[in-house]
């Protein structure tokens, strides 16, 4: 009994001593693994398959960061987090990168001690209703009860939307989105609401999915972005530029398949800079100059990652919409490597 007590004391001490830390990159290198915070399961972004392997857009981003550091995309420790836990886990150092469909808002960016590195998916909040309600637009939902899950920007967006149009409403907020969907299916609510990207995935789960329709209105801007702790600018740059490298790779037509060849060939100067054949861009973020090559070789460019997890090659078949490149009708725009 007494020995157990001593053990607990020692554990408590460890917990409280963990505050002092070296640079995040050194820690990650010493650990040999990147700790990456993801969702507890959201198809297309981060979810596990039958054999327990993680897949998704957010997952592949962490794999890209790991590949840039270790030249090995498997050196990632995925930590599933609820929306309630996510920022605390990042602040306390439990994870190095939060890649978990988190909305880049001013509050999240400034008041929580975390910084967002750049938008990885431009999303918006959508609404799903039963077809038999014969509703054409969100403006006809006066008096509706809305099922959603708690702990995200969703509740606030619903409140803003209905309030600014002086429409009465009730919000029924569940801890988990699966229960919210079940309650909507049992007709507890008139509306089910979440980010548009996950709305189509959730609709497929309904028994009679053709009886439900996703309204065309998006009631909010949801720029989803990976985040890091505020106190390590070098690490922040490393994660940010990994994201930019993936987007630039698509723009420069560098793919998983041709990256190696392009890095050796006499390619365009932009490509050579990106892949480390020219210039000294890796050093400033503490990596080798071919860091981007390693990342692209491992997971492909942004377009490939999108198609594989969310787009035409995935069961979700989400249109790229806003997430097309800026020169292709979208708003995806990464600063150049130079």
């Amino acid at each position: 009994m007494k020995r157990q007590g001593i053990l607990y004391c020692a554990l408590a001490l460890l917990f409280f001593c963990a505050g002092a830390r070296a640079g995040t990159l050194d820690e990650v290198k010493a650990r040999g693994k990147l700790n990456c915070g993801v969702t507890q399961g959201l198809a297309g972004f981060s979810s596990t398959d039958a054999s327990g392997n993680w897949a998704g857009l957010d997952v592949d981003f962490c794999r890209a960061v790991a590949a840039a550091i270790f030249d090995d995309p498997s050196k990632v420790n995925f930590v599933p987090l609820s929306s309630k836990q996510r920022f605390t886990a990042l602040q306390s150092g439990e994870i190095d990168v939060l890649s978990r469909v988190s909305t880049w808002t001013m509050q999240n960016d400034t008041a929580l001690g975390v910084n967002f590195v750049g938008v990885i998916y431009h999303d918006g909040q959508g609404l799903m209703v039963r077809k038999k309600l014969e509703v054409q637009s969100a403006l006809e939902l006066s008096g509706a009860e809305v099922c959603t899950n708690t702990g995200t920007t969703t509740e606030l967006n619903i409140a803003d939307f209905f309030r600014s149009r002086s429409m009465p409403y009730k919000i029924v907020a569940f801890e988990k989105s699966d229960e919210a969907l079940k309650a909507y299916e049992a007709e507890r609510c008139d509306v089910y609401s979440t980010d548009a990207s996950s709305l189509s995935a959730q609709r497929v789960k309904l028994a009679q999915s053709e009886d439900h329709v996703i309204l065309p209105d998006l009631i909010s801007k949801e720029p989803l972005a990976p985040a890091v702790r505020q106190n390590d600018p070098q690490w922040e740059s490393l994660v940010r530029w990994t994201l930019f490298a993936l987007i630039n790779a698509e723009e420069l037509a560098v793919t998983k398949a041709n990256a190696d060849k392009l890095s050796r060939a006499d390619a365009a100067p932009g490509v050579r800079r990106l892949l480390g054949a020219e210039g000294d861009y890796g050093r400033a973020i503490g990596l080798d100059n071919d860091w981007a090559l390693k990342a692209i070789r491992a997971v492909g460019n942004y377009g490939e990652i999108f198609d594989r997890n969310l787009g035409q090659q995935s069961p979700l078949k989400i249109d790229r919409g806003l997430n097309r490149l800026w020169n292709n009708g979208g708003i995806l725009f990464a600063p150049p490597v130079r």
Partner: peptide, 11 residues
């Protein structure tokens, strides 16, 4: 401990 925590981050 749910909505308010998520919005303010004052865990």
């Amino acid at each position: 401990a749910g909505t308010t925590l998520a919005q303010t981050g004052q865990a």
